[in-house]
Design a protein around this nucleic acid. Structure first.
Lengths: 194, 194
DNA sequence: CAGGAAGCGGAATTACGCTTCCGATTTTGG
DNA sequence: CCAAAATCGGAAGCGTAATTCCGCTTCCTG
């Protein structure tokens, strides 16, 4: 029950402020340093003490999970936008491109997407399902239109995306190799010629 | 100067035995547990003490590097075999397939190939160069024969291979998803149709 | 087969980072 | 403005795993 907060009085003003600061700082530091970002760094970055940090998030994993949840909402947003593209093939391509573009530069999100064990997926179930649903629709439409391999399913989306993401992750930030990698993958996903 | 061992007396018999045991055990444990394999586990697995382990390898990184070096020699062997295939396109495909097949099930080698920072590449320069040379020849030949994209170079080999390897690594061992991923990648690397 | 160099064992040392604790401080409701 | 409740700060506690140290043992040479 991640967010079963029915009868809960609103946070005290300072607490809300701090919580936001924490999420912002942690998002930034995790993006830069991946899971190696330290709790102390994060607290310091906000000018807060450890106690405060731990009052808001019981442990590092919970903090990371909260951030990944937020990122996923952003992804769903992007996917919805891609869905608006008229051409089914172009819509799929945009969805994939935007997804990767969004992951670029965010080491912790990359790790999370690749499936290292540092996120409580239980607590992001909803956000993830929302995203999956949209992508599924996009893929189905593109397949029906004959724009991409007919055997492509939603399960392939993480597969191919994560491959490209690993190129991002294990390369110095800013290295553009992954875009070339993406071109190969996109070519491979096209409807094969006879 | 990694191996500038000119005037070096041969290891004592027991020492040589132990060194081999260490490499074997470490190779196994790193394969199974990745970089999380512990030095103590490795020592125990050989029935040796920590001191012995550290006499042979000054630290964990050196041990890992030694093992990756050995693996790379194996890779070069495989690449040479692939080069014997008459059809240039098939040779390339075999080289890629065999490379990945060899990495399957070896978590530490996968990490190393993806480029996490746990290997001293300096100390494996030779083995790596040897491998690169062979793969370069294979790619050049396949390009000339028109079997694969004309813009493909050696630099793309790690790129596409590592994408697939990340699917291996971040999936429970034995999961075959990466083979499907590989099919996409192979399709994407083919000469594009007009 | 004796002497000494080369090796070995494994407990103790270090280092590092997450997490906990609790007195001090700030906010809020009346 | 006051007292209770909610928050905060940051030093101390812990667990983990690499690495070091050094007295003891085993192999090799003459």
């Amino acid at each position: 029950m991640p967010t079963m907060t029915a009868t809960e009085r609103p946070l005290r003003a300072d607490a809300r402020r701090n919580r936001e600061q924490i999420i912002a700082a942690a998002g930034e530091l995790f993006a830069t340093h991946g899971h190696d970002a330290q709790m102390e760094q994060i607290a310091a970055h906000c000018g807060l003490g450890m106690g405060t940090l731990y009052r808001h998030f019981p442990n590092k994993r919970a903090l990371l999970t909260a951030i990944v949840g937020a990122r996923f909402q952003g992804m769903a947003e992007l996917a919805r936008a891609a869905e608006q593209v008229a051409d089914p093939g172009a819509a799929f391509e945009k969805a994939l491109r935007d997804y990767l573009e969004a992951a670029d530069g965010d080491a912790a999100f990359q790790l999370a997407l690749m499936g290292d064990g540092t996120v409580n997926w239980e607590d992001v179930k909803t956000e993830k399902a929302e995203f999956a649903e949209i992508i599924t629709r996009i893929i189905t439409r593109a397949v029906k239109a004959g724009a991409i391999r007919p055997d492509l399913t939603f399960a392939d989306f993480p597969l191919i995306a994560h491959g490209v993401i690993s190129t991002m992750y294990y390369q110095p930030a800013g290295n553009p190799d992954w875009r070339r990698h993406l071109e190969f993958v996109l070519a491979g996903v096209q409807t094969p010629h006879p």
